[in-house]
Simulated assay, not measured.
Amino acid sequence: MSFAHDTEIALGEAAALVNTLSDDGDSLETRAGLDAFLARHPFSGQVTGDEEELRTVRRLRERLRAFWSVDDRDGAAALVNALLADCATSPYLSKHDAFDWHLHVTRPEAPLAMRIGAEAAMGFLDLVRADALGRLRTCAADDCSDVLVDLSRNHSKRYCDTGNCGNRANVAAYRARKRTLA
């Protein structure tokens, strides 16, 4: 099953936000870290640039990580509903920049964390409706705890996008095969 473009973007951004706190540290420790995240994952609407905005985005990150731990659709639906309620959603269609008509679920003047949370909640909502929570995974590398969203056709994605986990695993497997042949 394929998802709408905005759903895929929202899920990817949610995973990227969760992965800002990884085994390598916290890339959202400073305002500069949030600015770097927003440069890679731009959100329409205002950005205040203050410390409170940074704190609320960091709190949201913890809430989003919970989606990768939920075991069933009922639990995920409860998380989605709570996030939608807390983000004061107000859906409307928007057309801006290079994007054709698409759904926004918060106003552009809403706080950044609310806009990110609402968009993520809508992405998770589609996973619940499609009974596709299995697409939320943790990286298969032994030394990585980053999360990923498997949007591949055959549901085969195993490694995160944050490092070289897949490459390292493939090299290790290759070397192991070479050792057994030698």
Rank of each mutant, 00 (worst) to 15 (best):
L181F: 14
R65S: 13
D142R: 15
H155R: 13
P91E: 05
F99A: 15
D126Y: 01
G12D: 12
D74Q: 14
T56R: 15
F43C: 01
G166F: 04
A169D: 02
S145E: 07
A121W: 05
L181D: 15
R31L: 15
G134E: 14
S145P: 00
Y92N: 08
C139F: 04
D86Y: 08
D146F: 04
D97W: 08
W68H: 04
A39I: 07
H155F: 13
W101P: 06
A132K: 06
G45Y: 00
L84Y: 07
T162G: 13
L34W: 07
A85R: 12
T106Y: 01
D126Q: 14
R129D: 12
K178W: 10
E119I: 04
D100W: 13
A14S: 08
S145A: 13
H155C: 08
R73T: 12
L21V: 03
L133I: 04
F124S: 00
N167T: 13
G33M: 02
V18F: 04
T106K: 08
P91I: 06
A169K: 10
L60M: 04
T7S: 08
P111R: 08
L136I: 00
G25S: 08
A85D: 15
Y174N: 12
N170P: 10
F37W: 09
D6M: 07
D142M: 11
R153V: 03
L103Y: 00
R137Y: 06
R158L: 11
V18I: 09
L21S: 05
L54M: 09
L83M: 07
A4V: 11
D142L: 13
D146N: 14
D72W: 01
A130L: 10
D35C: 10
N154G: 09
R179M: 11
V105C: 11
A14M: 05
L79N: 03
H41G: 01
S152I: 10
G123F: 05
D97S: 05
F3P: 02
D74G: 14
A39G: 13
S94T: 10
A16H: 06
A4R: 15
K157R: 15
L151Y: 00
R65K: 11
L83Q: 05
E119T: 15
T20L: 02
T180Y: 04
L125H: 13
L83K: 07
R40P: 05
L133E: 02
